[in-house]
């Protein structure tokens, strides 16, 4: 980019988004979470522990903030003026947002966290030196550090529990950062299966663990490039654009009932997870 071009198109340059230059061709994994369906049952969190070999750190370490829930259910309360206590409970499943312009990726000194071609924010455990800069720069604070050596010293999986570890997922040692991968081990298998059949992964062929167990079907996951995918349809219906930092919901007038939004969009992280706002009594 020449300097004249830079000066003339400064505002465009500032607005430019990484995937404008290199659009996703085959895959762009994305998620949408319907907060209206979420009951806060924590099944997604449990499934994630089982699928991704997350250590159950115990009460004491959990209280110290050393937990590893890659997807966590956050509770918010809106009890003012309600008839029954806790009626205003709201739940928000929070997981790595797989930002298209991820703040964690630029700051890692060793390049241990990268963007993949199919739009995932990947974490290379072997490369991580544990500077924890990625977590410091993550606005969502969804990155979890291995504060202890869970597999060996802390013995989180005593015999025979080590038999239930997922063989497709690394058991991380102390000193590395980890986070939600959108169940990348499942995605790789699905992609390679599809490739042998000479096509792309079809919608519904691959599910993340959290999506699979969600009793109310609040989580949908799929390929945003695929026009048939449920996720893509949801994003389209809610007029949520991956490459924008402000969505139609904020601009729309009251009459238009749009619910789709992404968290902390104004930081221009371009997250891949869309949330569907919970419907309130007043809105129905």
């Amino acid at each position: 980019m020449s300097i004249t071009n830079l000066l003339e198109n400064w505002s465009d340059f500032r607005q430019q988004h990484p995937s404008d230059d290199r659009p996703h061709r085959e895959y762009k994994w994305a998620m949408s979470i319907d907060l209206d369906s979420c009951t806060g049952c924590n099944a997604c969190s449990v499934a994630c522990y089982a699928e991704n070999n997350l250590p159950v750190v115990g009460k004491e370490k959990f209280a110290h903030g050393h937990s590893h829930h890659w997807i966590r259910i956050e509770r918010y309360w809106d009890n003012d003026g309600r008839e029954f206590a806790d009626q205003g409970a709201q739940f928000l499943p929070m997981l790595c947002q797989h930002c298209e312009s991820a703040p964690c990726e630029t700051v890692c000194p060793v390049g241990a966290t990268n963007h993949t071609a199919d739009g995932l924010n990947s974490q290379v455990y072997n490369r991580c030196v544990g500077s924890r800069y990625c977590n410091a720069n993550c606005p969502y604070k969804v990155r979890y550090f291995n504060w202890y050596n869970y597999p060996t010293i802390d013995n989180v999986w005593p015999e025979p529990m080590n038999q239930q570890l997922n063989p497709d997922v690394t058991v991380r040692s102390k000193g590395v950062m980890e986070k939600c991968t959108f169940c990348v081990q499942r995605l790789t298998v699905a992609k390679s299966d599809a490739r042998t059949k000479g096509r792309s992964v079809l919608d519904g062929e691959v599910q993340t663990a959290c999506q699979q167990v969600c009793p109310t079907g609040a989580i949908s996951f799929g390929n945003l490039v695929d026009p048939e995918a449920k996720v893509g349809k949801q994003w389209m219906k809610q007029q949520v654009d991956l490459n924008k930092d402000k969505q139609a919901k904020d601009a729309a007038e009251e009459a238009v009932k749009l619910r789709g939004y992404r968290i902390l969009e104004e930081l221009r992280t371009y997250p891949s997870v869309m949330y569907l706002e919970q419907l309130r009594e007043s809105a129905i």
């Binding site: 370490k61 110290h64 903030g65 050393h66 937990s67 544990g130 977590n135 604070k141 990155r143 979890y144 550090f145 291995n146 504060w147 202890y148 050596n149 010293i153 102390k174 000193g175």
Partner: peptide, 11 residues
């Protein structure tokens, strides 16, 4: 033991 003993945590 691990960085955990310094009592830093995930946030």
């Amino acid at each position: 033991t691990g960085m955990g003993v310094s009592n830093k945590n995930n946030s």
